[in-house]
């Protein structure tokens, strides 16, 4: 195959830099899963409709199935495998276990990464579509159940773990 179909890129994933050649068509999701062995991010739809592939790109949540690997070059990619680093589980991960915030677990990687990104968005003062006051100088919205549900709605769960996920997120947030 000629060179314009492939690119040499550097990907920084969970603190490790990988130098690799990728087919330009390859999504970040497939690169993580098929080339780098990070099968934590899941392919639920490959269309950005389910959120199972959510990872953090420089701390912001993205659906990795709609992100080309070549477009992620230079960014810091965090997958579910990297959330806890080498240490103990994040309080959010522990809360997911304690409140049973998953059943089959297939959407869980995405729910967790999405929740981490969402909490950062909220901490930065971002409103959501259920935020009452969205004026630029409005107060930071209180992160109640309605806010969490709205902000997490890009992550589908067919087992129906939503109430437990919301509880786990709120509990984690309250514990600071």
């Amino acid at each position: 195959m000629t060179n314009h179909h492939r690119s040499e890129i550097s990907l920084h994933v969970n603190g490790v830099t990988h130098r690799l050649g990728v087919d330009n068509r390859t999504t970040l999701l497939d690169t993580l899963r098929e080339n780098l062995g990070h099968t934590g991010p899941k392919k639920g739809c490959d269309h950005g409709q389910c959120g199972a592939c959510t990872v953090l790109l420089d701390g912001r949540r993205v659906v990795s199935c709609l992100t080309l690997a070549v477009a992620a070059e230079g960014a810091e990619v965090t997958t579910v495998e990297g959330l806890a680093g080498d240490g103990e589980l994040l309080p959010l991960q522990q809360a997911f276990i304690r409140f049973d915030g998953f059943q089959c677990g297939y959407c869980t990687s995405g729910q967790l990464c999405s929740a981490v990104g969402m909490l950062a968005e909220h901490a930065a003062g971002w409103p959501s579509s259920v935020t009452a006051d969205v004026s630029p100088d409005g107060p930071t919205p209180v992160l109640d159940a309605a806010e969490v549900r709205e902000r997490m709605s890009g992550n589908l769960c067919r087992c129906g773990a939503y109430p437990s996920i919301v509880r786990a997120v709120l509990e984690t947030e309250a514990a600071g």
């Binding site: 899963r33 099968t39 579910v80 276990i97 304690r98 998953f102 677990g105």
Partner: peptide, 18 residues
């Protein structure tokens, strides 16, 4: 809690395509 909970919250649980 589920026995496989830690594996599912760290992405370590392997599904058929993994």
């Amino acid at each position: 809690p589920r026995i496989e909970g830690p594996a599912k919250v760290t992405g370590a649980a392997r599904y058929a395509a993994d």
